[in-house]
Design a protein around this nucleic acid. Structure first.
Length: 353
DNA sequence: AATCCGGGGCC
DNA sequence: GGCCCAGGATT
């Protein structure tokens, strides 16, 4: 049996029953593939069900607004995926007559769809023979063939893409791609792979040289930076002051409390006496309560957030600011990062004030 | 080529 | 604390 025949044989006996494998609809497959980018199946599953139920077709999806998409995306991270999905939905309605494309060459032109996702959707929905190369495939190929090319580099990506397209079963590309990823995910997993029971062990370079932990070779990422977020909570118990983030920073278009960022940690009492603070929130503000600091890890940043509940906020300080009041019972309609929705979940009616 | 973009699970 | 996860866009 060839390499790919072994992988497919294993897949037929060990595959998980995942909902997006029971359809040929390129829209639903696209939905699942975007959700699963850099995201574990178990984490993305509830989101897939929510999206598929609320937006059963691309027309339903496009009829929503970006705010609604981001709201349903809340908590999943990498929010550009949600923003790009919405752009793609509009493109499909305008440029493809509301029919989600299934061909690689059309898919690759859409927002948020790169080589991996275009190969996945086209092979699963239309059986185009284009190999998917995700983290699972990198790992499986590098271990089995003993390839020490750095995977997170343009050259490495090229090398592994070529190899993946050489091993793909062109007679059944969709099945072949699914099998490669499932094998990498369950059998040839990152930590403690089950080499003793692996059907590929006799031909596997890494297994035969006891060097599984040496593959794949990956360039280490740069250290993260620290940021200090001071969230200013202004509430009368019925409504709360909110801000919608803009620009190229994290969490674009998500909502949060008015933010006062500092270059280092500053105690709340000291913070409100700094000149910049008074200019933003008024001369008469006083601290009611402080929550935190809360540590929050992102892929490239460490956030230290403290929530400063203040009183004495003057309404005329709303002038020329993007802030707005949101009623407590409408907060759930606003997409928020975890640092905000987790706080609101702890104090749903600001009963701490 | 390097960096940025979330949140969670595992070791 | 580091690594990884059905990656892609930007610079």
């Amino acid at each position: 049996m060839s390499f790919i025949d072994e992988v497919i044989g294993w897949y037929n006996n060990n595959k998980r029953d995942l909902p997006w494998r029971n359809t040929n609809d390129p829209y639903l497959i696209w939905l699942s593939e975007i959700i699963l980018q850099q995201t574990r199946v178990e984490q993305g599953m509830p989101y897939y069900h929510r999206f598929a139920e609320k937006y059963p077709t691309i027309s339903h999806f496009a009829a929503a607004g970006e705010d609604q998409i981001l709201n349903l995306w809340q908590g999943l991270g990498y929010y550009s995926r949600g923003r790009n999905m919405y752009k793609t939905a509009l493109m499909v309605m305008e440029e493809h007559g509301g029919y989600f494309p299934s061909q690689y060459e059309k898919l690759i032109k859409l927002k948020g769809i790169g080589e991996y996702t275009a190969a996945a959707v086209s092979s699963f929905s239309a059986n185009e023979a284009r190999a998917v190369v995700d983290g699972n495939v990198f790992r499986l190929l590098s271990r089995y063939f003993g390839i020490d090319e750095v995977i997170n580099s343009p050259k490495g990506k090229k090398v592994f893409t070529q190899l993946a397209n050489e091993v793909i079963d062109t007679g059944r590309p969709g099945l072949s791609n699914q099998a490669m990823m499932e094998f990498g995910s369950l059998q040839c997993r990152p930590a403690n792979p089950d080499c003793g029971n692996c059907p590929l062990r006799t031909g596997c370079f890494a297994c035969n040289t006891s060097s599984v932990q040496n593959f794949p070779v990956k360039q280490k990422k740069k250290a993260t930076r620290d940021r200090y977020f001071n969230y200013i909570v202004v509430s009368d118990g019925e409504k709360v002051l909110m801000n919608k983030r803009t620009g190229k920073d994290i969490w674009e278009n998500l909502h949060e409390f008015p933010l006062f960022e500092t270059s280092h940690f500053v105690q709340a009492e000291e913070l409100i006496t700094t000149p910049g603070f008074r200019e933003l929130f008024g001369e008469n503000v006083k601290i009611s309560l402080v929550h935190g600091p809360v540590k929050h890890i992102l892929s490239h940043q460490r956030l230290f957030a403290q929530y400063i509940i203040i009183k004495g906020f003057e309404e005329n300080f709303l002038m020329k600011k993007p802030w707005f009041y949101a009623k407590n019972d409408t907060l759930h309609d606003l997409a928020q990062p975890k640092l905000i929705f987790a706080f609101l979940k702890m104090f749903p009616t600001f009963n701490l004030i």
